[in-house]
């Protein structure tokens, strides 16, 4: 790689890092087409270069499709930076009971093969938390992308797929 090409790659990596680290929309991350527009057609290779740098810091760029069962075009997928390593310190403003509600909801839905009626989730959570709190927490997790809701049921949202290692969560719950 000559000097000029190395400099060009570095510029592209910096641009991709800026797009990925700083929020441009309500939802974190950027779509593949946005990266393509800013960085160029070789954006997937640029992401790999960026990954090799940030992995040393315990971070990683993750690609998320709309449908977890199908591999779509990268241009339509969302790219986000996630913490690769396990958290060692508190890293969110969530209260412990809010995290508990989210954790129990996700485990409950995952155990039902990724989908459960909202009523069954509410009834289950109401065993330990007031219904008003449960309802507002579920609505908030839907807004934040951790859960999704259609006419029939609640299911796992894109953000859970990006952030939560479901296998580890279930193993920890079973092993408790």
């Amino acid at each position: 790689m000559d000097q000029e090409e190395a400099a060009r790659t570095e510029r592209k990596v910096k641009k991709a890092a800026q797009l990925l680290f700083f929020r441009r929309h309500n939802q974190p991350g950027v779509k593949g087409w946005e990266l393509k527009k800013a960085v160029g057609d070789d954006y997937l290779e640029i992401i790999e270069v960026l990954n090799s740098i940030i992995r040393r810091l315990g971070l990683e760029v993750q690609r998320l499709g709309d449908d977890p069962e199908k591999e779509g075009k990268p241009d339509n997928d969302r790219f986000v930076v996630v913490l690769k390593e396990q958290l060692t310190e508190k890293a969110s403003g969530l209260r412990i009971d809010e995290v508990a509600i989210l954790s129990a909801t996700l485990a409950y839905i995952i155990s039902k093969q990724g989908r459960a009626s909202r009523k069954s989730v509410e009834d289950f959570l109401a065993d330990k938390f007031p219904r008003r709190r449960v309802n507002s927490a579920l609505d908030r997790y839907i807004r934040q992308g951790y859960l999704n809701e259609d006419e029939k049921s609640l299911f796992i949202g894109w953000r859970t797929r990006a952030e939560v290692d479901s296998k580890t969560l279930m193993e920890l719950i079973l092993g408790s």
């Binding site: 680290f21 700083f22 929020r23 974190p28 991350g29 971070l59 986000v80 930076v81 996630v82 913490l83 690769k84 390593e85 396990q86 958290l87 890293a91 969110s92 953000r159 990006a162 952030e163 939560v164 290692d165 479901s166 580890t168 969560l169 920890l172």
Partner: peptide
């Protein structure tokens, strides 16, 4: 322990 939060500033 199973959470890998997204970084967005």
């Amino acid at each position: 322990k199973a959470w890998h939060p997204i970084l967005a500033l």
